[in-house]
Simulated scan of single mutants.
Amino acid sequence: MKIISMIPARYGASRFPAKLMQDLGGKTVILRTYEATVATNLFDDVFVVTDSDIIYKEIVNHGGKAIMSVKEHDCGSDRIAEAVEDMDIDIVINVQGDEPFTDKASLKKLIEVFKDDDKKNIDLASLMVHITDEEEINNPNTVKVIVDKTNFALYFSRSVIPYPREKNVGVKYFKHKGVYAFRKQAILDFYKLPMLPLEASEKIECIRYLEYGKRIKMVETNVEGVEIDTPEDLERANKLWK
């Protein structure tokens, strides 16, 4: 089974432009993320896939591997799908470019999902984190996921799911952590299938898989990491790095 990692990387970002090229402990955020992913030793290959000459040169000038996107893309999954279309691979794991604190244990859990899936019933796998803070549960920027008894995703939403009409039934809330592991065919299917209303409404790309009948295995992790979406996040990341 050939397993690679792809790190989609856009230069532009509405909340924090050029965030991937900001300094984190003496190196750029994207280079830190790339090096941390390589250092896990979990992958046959690791690539940054980008629409930016600046990010491309940053990786290759430091001895890394990068791919320039040919087309414009709305999301990281589309960017990855274009890049892997002609590659001889089985599984591709999407590591977010703005998460330099790569957690090896969580990535290993995602890989094990496919190694244990002899019948190939699982199209993709992703991570979820148990959350208890009410502000976070109610925050529309926090994507929540509900699962069945075998941890297959039922739905993702920015709303509170499940709705707590009855508060004393032992419901747990899970935040979706946007690290995905795909079978190659699943991500190619995603690339070719049009967006449907639920995904368009929620602006959550993995809903497209559910709308087309794909099966998403969710893996629980207790490692939240640090997503660098704002200058304040970067400041916090630099303190952690030290």
Rank of each mutant, 00 (worst) to 15 (best):
I122W: 02
T132S: 15
A153R: 09
K192G: 01
D123S: 13
P164K: 01
Q96K: 09
K108T: 12
G170R: 10
E134Q: 13
V171D: 15
D148A: 03
I137H: 09
H176G: 06
G170E: 03
E136H: 09
P140K: 00
K115S: 12
F190C: 04
E112T: 15
F190A: 05
F174K: 10
L188H: 04
V179N: 12
H176Q: 13
D117T: 07
T142P: 00
E99P: 01
N121A: 11
R208F: 09
K177N: 15
L127K: 04
H130P: 09
V147D: 05
N121S: 07
S201A: 14
F156H: 13
I131H: 10
E134N: 14
I187T: 05
V143Y: 06
I111C: 04
F174Q: 08
I146R: 05
L107V: 10
E135S: 15
E99K: 09
Y180P: 01
F101D: 01
N121C: 12
N139P: 00
F190V: 01
P194H: 03
Y155Q: 12
M195R: 10
L193D: 08
D118F: 09
L154G: 05
V171N: 13
I111H: 07
K192T: 09
K108P: 00
I204C: 01
I146W: 01
L193K: 15
A186R: 03
L154P: 01
